[in-house]
């Protein structure tokens, strides 16, 4: 199957500084792909090359099999680009902004009005479409910013930090909308500072640092890179010492430690599935009154691979 968006060997240098080196990945139809990296890692440079704003020093970009360098207009017609900033005209209304970009991107006049209504409905701004953009809240502007990229029904939507500075309600609306789009078969390339957004929206994730992709895979594959053991916190009532001795012998438990008079911490494989066996094991000695299973997450993987927090 032809990838909706594929790049290979992308390189961009500014003098002696290498912004991006040998970046490559592939996004299948209907796949949501996340690009994670700290500030200055090369995310925006990569995206700029993918949408044709920067000419790479080396490497290729294929959009639905079309070489971006050889046939940029055809390739770009399949891309919806949502820049990091609100790239819209503040003196125009939301609807006028959409109409401008719709016409610019070649939508026929006859179908444009209907398509604008569809997009407004999708981003939940039908009732505010005729207000000037400079009267919108940050979240509403973000949503119109995304809407302008959807007008020409692109095959792949490229979003560069689309939720920066928005309120939780708008963020939820944006993420809900993106999940709908992916559900309808649109491919997605998503960069964000918010790990939970990437974890929620994306099927596959690449971690980029110092201009290079240092890890790539599904969420589970990435997490497995730093080990798959879960942390299980138990609170016990009864003979805690005897219960602790029993818990250490349960199959799957790698490590155990007393963390208090009534609490025990276990390191185990597949912690969530192990809970019934743990509860059964302490029967007769103690009762489990509270449990907490902490699974390793992408944030931990990110920290492990880059040595820095995503928000640094």
């Amino acid at each position: 199957m032809t990838a909706t968006l594929a790049c290979e060997g992308l390189r961009k240098r500014y003098g002696d500084v290498t912004a991006v080196e040998d970046v490559g990945f592939s996004i299948a139809p209907g796949q949501a792909y996340g690009l994670l990296g700290p500030n200055g890692a090369g995310k925006t440079t990569t995206i700029s090359m993918l949408v044709g704003l920067l000419r790479p020093d080396a490497g290729t970009v294929l959009v639905g099999g079309t070489d971006l360098a050889a046939d940029p207009r055809r390739a770009k017609a399949r891309i919806g680009y949502v820049p990091q900033e609100i790239a819209l005209y503040p003196e125009l209304t939301g609807r006028e902004n959409l109409r401008f970009f719709g016409r610019l991107f070649g939508l026929a006049r006859r179908g444009l009005a209907g398509r604008i209504e569809e997009v407004l409905d999708l981003i939940g701004l039908s009732d505010r479409a005729d207000g000037r953009l400079d009267t919108y809240s940050g979240g509403m502007r973000r949503r119109i910013n995304i809407g302008a990229a959807l007008l020409h029904r692109p095959d792949v939507l490229i979003l560069d930090e689309p939720t920066v500075g928005v309120d939780p309600q708008s963020r939820k609306a944006i993420l809900d909308g993106l999940e709908l789009l992916v559900g309808d078969g649109m491919s997605l390339l998503y960069t964000s500072h918010y790990m939970e957004e990437v974890e929620r929206v994306c099927d596959r994730v690449a971690i980029i640092d110092h201009g290079r992709i240092i890890a790539e895979g599904t969420r589970r594959e990435l997490i497995a890179m730093v080990g798959s053991a879960d942390k299980i916190e138990l609170v016990l009532d009864g003979d805690v010492e005897a219960a602790y001795a029993k818990l250490r012998t349960v199959e799957g438990v790698i490590e155990a430690a007393r963390t208090g008079a009534e609490s025990v911490r276990l390191i185990a494989e597949g912690g969530r599935y192990l809970l019934p066996a743990l509860i059964s094991a302490v029967e007769g000695s103690a009762t489990v009154t509270a449990t907490q299973v902490i699974e390793p997450d992408l944030e931990a993987t990110f920290l492990h691979l880059t040595g820095t927090s995503l928000r640094d």
Binding site: V51, L53, R73, R74, K76, I86, A87, Y89, L104, H152
Partner: peptide, 17 residues
């Protein structure tokens, strides 16, 4: 500065437009 120029350039239009 607004970013609209990049948005136009990222669309399926010729560079001189």
């Amino acid at each position: 500065k607004l970013g609209t120029l990049d948005r136009i350039r990222a669309g399926p239009v010729a560079a001189w437009v």
